[in-house]
């Protein structure tokens, strides 16, 4: 057994990045599915029911702890790898290949990740903190008391500044995923032979569709397309 190499070796650290990355990708999928309930345009009832389920299911609550742990690990390990890798070339090139040999977003994972992190601080402050800590307004429907997270969204996305920042956050996420999705599977050694093109195709589709759906939410509220 060489479990210690998971924490000490370069491949072990990359494995941490890949596995936590795949967990975060799964989280995005669930998050997007739940949030997409707003598009029923039913005054937010279906969405609030879904949010109610997420808030009261013990398995989801435990997964949330894992989500925060993995998010922190992904961030800390990612930044640490970035700075370590920077230190491996003390004298930089006068002329570099740039986009001739690689994609700009593949080289910009740390900065894209940092932008997502900054967005996330604002995002958690908008929705997670009120719904878990400071409290939201509630209403009763069919004898069940619901937090009105939908009303909070309506309120938040009246502000053009907030909508702009959310859109930029989604764009950063899209480019981060454009490399991250494929990269996670390559690190696990799975993006090879017959699976390579499948993973690349699914990765691009995921990187475009999920952030697009996310960005559509604040924009739809702002333009009064959903009430």
């Amino acid at each position: 057994m060489n479990w210690n190499t998971l924490f000490s070796s370069s491949i072990g650290k990359k494995l941490q990045m890949g596995l936590t990355g795949i967990f975060l990708i799964l989280f995005l999928l669930v998050h997007c599915y739940i949030n997409a309930q707003i598009f029923w345009n039913d005054g937010g009832q279906k969405f609030n029911e879904a949010a109610h389920f997420m808030a009261n299911n013990p398995l989801i609550r435990i997964s949330e702890l894992g989500l925060f742990a993995f998010l922190i690990l992904h961030t800390v390990q990612g930044l640490s790898l970035y700075f370590k890798n920077k230190s491996k070339r003390t004298q930089s090139y006068k002329v570099s290949a740039g986009n001739a040999t690689s994609k700009w977003y593949s080289r910009s994972m740390a900065i894209l990740g940092t932008l997502i992190l900054l967005f996330l601080v604002m995002h958690l402050n908008h929705f997670w903190v009120p719904s878990r800590i400071t409290g939201l307004e509630t209403y009763t429907f069919n004898g069940v008391e619901y937090h009105n997270l939908y009303a909070k969204m309506q309120l938040q996305f009246k502000d053009a500044m907030v909508v702009t920042i959310y859109t930029l956050g989604c764009i950063s996420l899209a480019w981060h995923l454009m490399h991250g999705f494929y990269s996670a599977f390559q690190t696990l050694g799975l993006a090879s032979f017959k699976y390579k093109s499948l993973i690349k195709t699914v990765g691009i589709a995921f990187s475009v569709l999920i952030p697009l759906l996310f960005a559509a939410m604040p924009i739809a509220f702002f333009l009064d397309l959903i009430k």
């Binding site: 790898l81 290949a97 490399h179």
Partner: peptide, 24 residues
């Protein structure tokens, strides 16, 4: 295990699947 351990010890960076190596 041994070759990767030596690679890390020599002070090479870690792979982030950028792909510039394959291109060059």
């Amino acid at each position: 295990l041994n070759m990767v351990a030596q690679m890390d010890k020599e002070g090479f960076g870690s792979c982030t699947n950028i792909g510039a190596c394959e291109a060059e």
